[in-house]
Design a protein around this nucleic acid. Sequence first.
DNA 1: AATAGGTATCGAAGCGCTTCGACAACCTAT
DNA 2: ATAGGTTGTCGAAGCGCTTCGATACCTATT
Lengths: 337, 337
Amino acid sequence: MVTLAEVAQHAGVSASTVSYVLSGKRSISANTRQRVERSIRELGYHPNAGARALASSKSNIIALMIPLRTDMYVPVMMEIAIAVATSARTHGYDVLLLTGEEGPDAVRRVAGSGLADGMILMDVELDDERLPLLRATDQPSVLIGLPADTTGLTCVDLDFRATGALCVEHLAKQGHQDIAVIGEAPAVYERHTGFAERTLEGLRSRSREMGVRLLHRPCEGGYDAMAVTLARILDERPGTSGIIVQNESAVEPLLALLRQQGRAVPEDVSVVAICPDQVATQASVRLTSVAIPAPEMGRHAVEHLVAKLEGRGSDEVVLIAPELTVRASTGPAPSRS
Amino acid sequence: MVTLAEVAQHAGVSASTVSYVLSGKRSISANTRQRVERSIRELGYHPNAGARALASSKSNIIALMIPLRTDMYVPVMMEIAIAVATSARTHGYDVLLLTGEEGPDAVRRVAGSGLADGMILMDVELDDERLPLLRATDQPSVLIGLPADTTGLTCVDLDFRATGALCVEHLAKQGHQDIAVIGEAPAVYERHTGFAERTLEGLRSRSREMGVRLLHRPCEGGYDAMAVTLARILDERPGTSGIIVQNESAVEPLLALLRQQGRAVPEDVSVVAICPDQVATQASVRLTSVAIPAPEMGRHAVEHLVAKLEGRGSDEVVLIAPELTVRASTGPAPSRS
DNA sequence: AATAGGTATCGAAGCGCTTCGACAACCTAT
DNA sequence: ATAGGTTGTCGAAGCGCTTCGATACCTATT
């Protein structure tokens, strides 16, 4: 393993000079810089991460805490994780992957050991048990998702309230009067995941404003659960002509069931999905949808965290504006006969 | 930030004693141990990761290199990543997330900087450009996936050859004579991903042995691509009564298309999938499938890597035996009229 | 000609930990 | 009583880096 000292000797300068060449914190003559850089290349030098962390009290690592569950939004999580990792690299950071398993202890461990300079938390619940700790240790951090109380925190999320509103608006404008919402699994609501509840708020308030009727039903993923849920919905509101789905694993089953029942999309029923674009475009009907901009969320999170770590940036809630893309699954409401 | 020295002072012992209490590398009297442990608790001490890494030349970090692409097997990747992370924790390691983006440079960087003690590579290609480096630096590592040449490497993977064979066998035994295979996207074959080619080998050799006809067609995910692929298959081999799918995002479209064409599953066509159990059980028909045991793969990978890091364990190829679960999508071949 | 201000470099201290050798204290077995 | 072993603890060195003066030289300014 090549060390700084060896590079220094090889280049005929002192160790500190090499360090300054690397960090650029003091001016170095062009001549010396080149000699040092050449030695670094020739010896294949890589600074030792531990030593660097010790001396500078900076690890250049960002911890990313992902949920342990894989019952929802797996592709989204993955996309965010990848976006965080690649985006972090462009800022000179590596990413440490923590699962939710350890819970608050992970926050303590990482903050206490100086393993990471800051952390990004995904899947934040409305009343997340990690938040008090985060505030207490004032560990630099960014949340993906929105807790109930955001004071002293930086959060990045899609504006799910606006997303809900946008979906209703789109359907209402096309004349749909009875709209059903197929939501996430009941467990998601029970654990008060912010995005689910905020979507619901947006859906409800906008349907009130626009005078349409809204029926919300949570739904486990899969064909069987979807069949039951759909039957109940159509039983309760036979006139339902617009459906909003916020559950990836219910999308395809829903379309299959509608087809099977002879309900044409979009002629008889319009469907709007809240899902990643990939799901919307690969479904058996190309779905009108509001995309969940996973890469953008990951990037934003990293950028805000890096800003904090560099002393710039402040606590702030960043809500990404939703965009509805019209595809083949929505159209005018069928005329009521 | 509490340091070792402060703990030592608080407990009235020397720093080295505290260190030995922590590591257990020398015997410590029960009395002293308790005093030290109490001080640690009271002060909320966490050893500094950088200092520890520097002094011991061990970071207690495992690097996990995941593919950048999200065009295939996203849930599987995610499950593996989570399994790796949680499993690593039980062995006292944290996981550093690297994306494939940096390619071989990431290997160099991590190995050179001592950032991680070892690495796990996912999505290994048959002739992966990272392998020469791995061998050259003799960086402790484990691959998930099987390259063409495994000498000097430790690999963990599902036995895809056996998987292919198992699928064919199951259908052949039920009397199916014409079997179609819907494979991964063409790009996957073009980049010579090991698992895809090995599955194919297994499929082909077993169908030769059992005297059935096999037609393999790569297929992009999604409804449209699946429609085209299916039409071609049925055109070329109208007698096809068994279908094997190895492409998650083709599963549901396939089922939808068959339904639409009035082909009943399993009465007219039997379908076997190679996919995670979740996909198989949540599909619109409960699918007979060979599961991709993601958690097991992740766990195995970590355990072998840890064994290597502790000086135990050797180079070895671990192939996990496939298991076929019969569900509702396969049955006897329709009698030929 | 003397002084001030830059610029380029070096030496040394120190980050918080691990680990080796030393040593005192005690316990056996002669 | 003494040599030889254990056991428990300490001090000091050192891991590879960053960073803070200090120094030496050079150019501009008075």
